[in-house]
Write a protein that binds this DNA or RNA. Structure first.
Length: 293
RNA sequence: GCUGGGGUAGUGAAGCGGUCAAACACUGCAGACUGUAAAUCUGCCGGCUUAUGCCUUCGGGGGUUCGAAUCCCUCCCCCAGCA
């Protein structure tokens, strides 16, 4: 059967939010003795559970999950750190003869791992603070004078600041997928995603994000939750501020989550190595076929 | 039934005689994005295979005017107050 050389080292499952990635990864993990690495920039935060649809205690008891609850809300967590973490996790998992399954909707995190991004200089937070006080125009001026090239994101303050921090250098990346990586994407039709986003929004509120938000605010403060909580929490904060009622919040969340799904689609769309499937079932069949060869 | 307010793009909302296809916001669509990425930013968004171009618009109809979304009459519909 499979020789060790050909044995896939990593299964990667991507797709927009609420497309069924988690369920699929769980299924594959159970069937092939795997462990899951969540590539999600929000579930790395402790306590940010309900609003991010973080894998449940039950699921985590059945299959080992990596990448969850790594830091406290409000703390800095970066793509660089995720990449390091994920790579270590993968070699740990593989060294024990298990299958690594990288799953998530944070495209940057996924790409940083599979294309082995060569990240550039870290930010000097003090300098960054100063840069943040400048206007877009002033930042562009600095870049021009230094001779760095201004990208298409020339109106984007964050990108301009980053360009200055990295002295305009581009980051290295692999131009193709490493051997042994199975990369699949789940991309249901828009109508289906919207439907699932809607259902999940109802579910998340029924599960009590609002009271979770209250608890988190008490523990970490409003700022921390607003900054690192994610879409659902920002909206819950609006309820707590008395700006909207819960029914409005749910609708708002559905809309915002769909917009997020669209951004994810845009990111993943340009990755030509992804094998796309319109539902988890088909993706599952493909992965199984690959793993069984 | 009377009085007052209102009917403008998918929605909200400016405009209140000429420079109005119509500010602005939201939605929607497309895109960018290597150390904040569930973030941040860009373009388009009445129609015309897309343009410093043409066409059609401002509840319906009629009128005043060189010229109306803007003034007048009338009809229809909303909302508030009074009956």
């Amino acid at each position: 059967m499979a020789t060790t050389a050909q044995k896939p080292k990593l299964v990667v499952i991507v797709g927009p939010t609420a497309s069924g990635k988690s369920a699929l990864s769980l299924k594959i993990a159970k069937e092939f003795d795997g462990e899951i690495i969540c590539a999600d920039s929000r579930t790395v935060y402790k306590g940010i559970d309900i609003g991010t649809a973080k894998p449940t205690k039950q699921d985590r008891a059945k299959v080992k999950h990596w990448g969850l609850d790594l830091v406290e809300p409000g703390q800095r967590f970066t793509a660089y750190r995720f990449k390091k973490y994920a790579q270590a996790a993968i070699s740990d998992i593989n060294s024990r003869g298990k299958l690594s399954i990288l799953v998530g909707g944070t495209g940057l995190y996924i790409d940083s791992v599979i294309f082995d991004f060569g990240f550039r200089d870290d930010a000097n937070l003090l300098k960054r603070q100063k840069l943040e006080s400048l206007s877009v125009l002033e930042l562009q001026e600095i870049i021009k004078k230094a001779g760095y090239k201004i990208s298409e994101n020339s109106q984007n303050k964050r990108h301009l600041i980053r360009a200055i921090e990295t002295k305009g250098r581009a980051g290295a990346r692999k131009s193709s997928l490493p051997k042994g990586v199975i990369l699949v994407g789940i991309l249901p039709p828009d109508g289906v995603i919207k439907e699932q986003v809607g259902q999940r929004a109802e579910q998340i509120f029924a599960n009590g994000v609002l009271s979770e938000t209250k608890k988190l605010v008490r523990k970490y403060g409003k700022e921390a939750i607003a900054e690192t909580g994610g879409i659902a929490y920002k909206i819950c904060l609006e309820i707590l501020a008395g700006k909207i009622i819960e029914a409005e919040a749910i609708e708002k969340f559905k809309k915002a989550d769909w917009q997020y799904a669209r951004r994810q689609k845009t990111w993943f769309r340009r990755n030509k190595f992804i094998h796309w499937f319109s539902d988890a079932e088909q993706a599952s069949n493909y992965i199984k076929a690959q793993l069984n060869t």
